[in-house]
């Protein structure tokens, strides 16, 4: 199993999957940092303008609240886009992890070796999971660091948020590898991407449902979260960050990010369900691959 995991990790490095992701991520971070820089300048000007003006306009408290809120919004936007990037990397790096190797015959010689089929699946999962966890942690910390050093934002010190951020690609990885044991690479890629998108849209529908107190919309969102819980994990991260910042507007029940924020925070039960979902799809992958003929 560790031999397969090590080869899978090496493959991600040697085939430049991680390198391509890192280069494009650097580009994203540069763009994001540039936006942060100009936003920070504008907010500083707003603060100076308020302190110089006498009477009229916003009060000092209102201005500080708006500045704080803008910084928060930019932080959460960074986390939202980073979640999307790391999720797509999880899908596209592992979409052909089994199917492509069966299609091109690469698995034939490996499977005749003294190795159990379950060890091949677990090895692949561990290899990709190591790569994605490493990447996700660095990306999450980079977003926090940019917000702290460029915008002077108070960044949360929440290990739970980092762990949840890493959990997102792992859930998608388990789902995609399971699909790869049964479907062709193309069909699996389309399925995983569509389900991920449905999960994201479902999360927004749930936000609208909760905000408008429409139970049909909220229930629709809950069902999509059960089908693909990645969006719920993102909303847990948003909830944790809002809590730890003691953000006034969040505490007052105002969601600064609209449908990208969290109107109804996912429960601990949802977190437990997500872990069960992850383990279940690894089990499905093992079972499906163990029963499959490698023709």
């Amino acid at each position: 199993m560790l031999t397969i995991a090590s080869l899978t990790f090496k493959e991600a490095l040697r085939k430049k999957i991680l390198l391509a992701a890192v280069v494009l991520t650097l580009l994203f971070l540069v763009l994001y940092g540039t936006g942060l820089h100009f936003m920070a300048n504008d907010l500083e000007e707003m603060r100076e303008h308020q302190s110089n003006s006498r009477g009229g306009g916003f009060s000092a408290v209102e201005t500080e609240l708006m500045i704080e809120q803008s910084k928060r919004m930019f932080l959460l936007l960074g986390i939202y886009f980073s979640s999307s990037i790391v999720s797509l990397l999880a899908i596209f790096s592992s979409v052909g992890s089994v199917s492509a190797e069966i299609e091109n015959g690469m698995l034939h010689a490996i499977m005749a070796k003294p190795i159990r089929r379950r060890d091949i699946i677990l090895g692949k999962f561990i290899g990709y999971a190591l790569m994605l966890s490493f990447y996700a942690a660095i990306l999450f910390i980079s977003i926090l660091a940019l917000n702290h050093y460029i915008a002077g934002a108070k960044v949360p010190r929440e290990p739970g948020a980092v762990a949840l951020f890493i959990l997102q690609p792992l859930v998608l990885l388990a789902f995609t590898i399971a699909g790869s044991t049964r479907f062709s690479t193309l069909a699996n890629g389309i399925t995983a991407f569509m389900l991920y998108t449905i999960g994201v849209i479902g999360g927004m529908i749930e936000w609208v449902g909760v905000t408008m107190k429409n139970s049909v919309l909220s229930n629709t969102g809950i069902v999509t979260s059960l089908l693909m819980p990645v969006d719920s994990i993102y909303r847990m991260i948003v909830g944790l960050i809002s809590d730890s910042s003691g953000n006034l507007m969040s505490l007052m029940g105002v969601d600064p990010l609209g449908p990208f924020g969290t109107a109804s925070r996912p429960s601990i039960a949802m977190l437990i369900y997500t872990f069960i979902y992850l383990v279940a799809f690894i089990a499905i992958a093992v079972r499906s691959f163990s029963r499959r003929d490698i023709a």
Partner: peptide, 30 residues
């Protein structure tokens, strides 16, 4: 299977490895 070797018909190996690395990988698997 430790005592069995197999060359498949439609062989394809990890072409990003060197020949020696491929054999190290197969030696570890075997």
């Amino acid at each position: 299977r430790r005592r069995v070797g197999f060359l498949p018909e439609n062989f394809r190996y990890q072409d990003w490895l060197t020949g020696r690395e491929l054999l190290q990988y197969h030696a570890a698997l075997a």
